[in-house]
């Protein structure tokens, strides 16, 4: 059960705290629907091209590092767990545990970004950044391989942007919780961030096999 704690202020437009909380949750879910459609457009584009160019996409995807991708998948999955723990302790009003697991989540998210950065750097060294300097062997595959890497950077880039936003939000929350700011007195801010974070995680769960594990 939710432990008794200082209740959030009820904004003027709401009747009571229950209505306010429910509204925030419904709002977050609706926002996540728009996010799904946002990524959905990219996934649709990717799938159409992959079906049309299975062979070349397979060739191109061999330049991605499956170990690094797998490692990052584990990192994000773990961060989902720590996020769930944060929400759990937040609902119980246990501030210390909440802070601890929030910090672990941030650390994991940063780990993900660092590894992603190494991967991007590697692509840059290999000349796999789409544009005038794009190099790919064999040359006949170059055009389609460039399409693959265009989509790779668009999709993972947009995902990474979401991770960065997540890190920023969690950092702000950490500070607010640390200074016992009244706006984070109940669990709703953490709950909403948790929903967002699980979404970011799920997107990666789709990205990893789609990009890194293409069957021949």
């Amino acid at each position: 059960m939710v432990q008794e704690q200082a209740q959030q202020k009820v904004s003027i437009q709401f009747e009571d705290i229950a209505q306010q909380n429910e509204s925030y949750i419904v709002g977050m879910w609706t926002f996540l629907v728009t996010e799904i459609m946002f990524f959905g457009g990219l996934f649709a584009t990717y799938l159409v091209y992959r079906v049309a160019n299975q062979q070349t996409f397979w060739e191109a995807h061999r330049h991605l590092s499956i170990p690094l991708g797998f490692f990052n998948t584990c990192v994000l999955l773990t961060s989902s767990l720590t996020m769930a723990l944060t929400v759990h302790y937040s609902q119980r009003g246990l501030r210390k545990q909440q802070l601890l697991w929030l910090l672990v989540t941030i650390a994991l998210a940063c780990t993900f970004l660092v590894v992603k950065g190494f991967e991007y750097h590697h692509k840059f060294v290999e000349g796999l950044i789409p544009g005038a300097n794009f190099r790919f062997e064999p040359a006949e595959h170059m055009r389609v391989a460039q399409l693959f890497f265009s989509l790779y950077f668009a999709m993972t880039g947009l995902h990474a942007l979401h991770v960065v936003i997540g890190v920023l939000v969690m950092t702000i929350l950490t500070v607010l919780i640390a200074i016992k700011h009244p706006s984070v007195q109940d669990f709703i801010p953490i709950e909403l961030t948790g929903l967002y974070w699980h979404f970011v995680d799920i997107v990666w769960i789709f990205l990893f096999p789609l990009l890194y594990l293409i069957p021949r």
Partner: peptide, 12 residues
């Protein structure tokens, strides 16, 4: 773009 559709029995 010969590699897009390779005929069965032939190498790309």
């Amino acid at each position: 773009r010969p590699l897009a559709k390779v005929v069965d029995g032939y190498e790309p």
